[in-house]
Design a protein around this nucleic acid. Sequence first.
DNA 1: GCATTCGCCTAATACTTTTAGGCAAACGCC
DNA 2: GGCGTTTGCCTAAAAGTATTAGGCGAATGC
Lengths: 190, 190
Amino acid sequence: MTRVRLSPERLTRAGAELADEVGFEQVTVSEVARRFDVRVASLYSHLKNSHDLKTRIALLALEELADRAAEALAGRAGKDALTALANVYRDYAREHPGRYAAAQFRLAPEAAASSAGVRHAQMTRALLRGYDLTEPDQTHAVRLLGSVFHGYVSLEMGGGFSHSAPDTQETWTRVLDALDALLRNWPPSP
Amino acid sequence: MTRVRLSPERLTRAGAELADEVGFEQVTVSEVARRFDVRVASLYSHLKNSHDLKTRIALLALEELADRAAEALAGRAGKDALTALANVYRDYAREHPGRYAAAQFRLAPEAAASSAGVRHAQMTRALLRGYDLTEPDQTHAVRLLGSVFHGYVSLEMGGGFSHSAPDTQETWTRVLDALDALLRNWPPSP
DNA sequence: GCATTCGCCTAATACTTTTAGGCAAACGCC
DNA sequence: GGCGTTTGCCTAAAAGTATTAGGCGAATGC
């Protein structure tokens, strides 16, 4: 029997594909083993445990997402940049629902700190340079944008906006218009 | 041996408590059985299966949340109502993290349609009567508010706003200020 | 008090997760 | 090209969860 050449990276990629097919919740060490046609126990030389696999998938998704975001922001500013960044999240979630769910996986604090998660916050800050916000309002705005992007995408994917009129694409466009208007006209603190 | 008097309702409540203690993901038919000191198989006369248990917990959470929202909105309007409704979600998530996670459980379309989920949308609509929005902008605004509430709460709970300055309470207040300003000054469509 | 119902039990099967220890393929070296 | 070492995948086994089938006794109703 020739060997299969497993590695944490290959297992993670397979896990990510599996997540997109059946959902992140259903990702299982056993199923990944099955896909490589090896015994489950064999994966445990490459992965600490099931949680480790999920963490790695989450980190992969965060990186991919951050890479896409960086590319989308390059050379854009203002509303153009806002729209581009927002669409990165929405499109990624549509193309890779399992990975997107993985990106929400609760990471241990140290893992989170060294993840691409921080790049995301930095990029949203970069976006805001096109608007006229100073601290602490800039941080408030970073958090608001993160909330809207994540909240919208997650409700839309979850069927929260049941396919009723008006269609979600229209809402998405108008929400981005509204956010742009809000950022250009951020209310002063009282 | 005297009987324990199980029922779907009691099992659901126990499951909800379990969710708040260990997380919705970790809710297991076996653990619920353990809490009633009965055999796992005994639960299957009251529940179709594990998925059924989770669905029931989700429906319970949605109802509780809708009840709280209805109470919070009673007698309030405008920004007062906006703040009250927003705090219902945030407070519920803090008091009952497992139930809040359950409320995001993907329901089958028919279950979703007959759930309290629709009440939530109606209440957000009611809130918007205090602002001057007509269709389809009202629907866009309903979706925006849902996204912000859910997105903010979920990121905050997930540690997304790593305990850095400024604190999340301040951001929350300013975000609600910003949303109020936005709703009072909704940008016309282009 | 007795018959019926129905609720919880035992038993059994099938997965998934995880650890321990074995054997042979692959690699590095002469 | 043979030889030893490493190491990668295997078998074995234990523990936990999900689920179904069928039994027996407690609760209920007359």
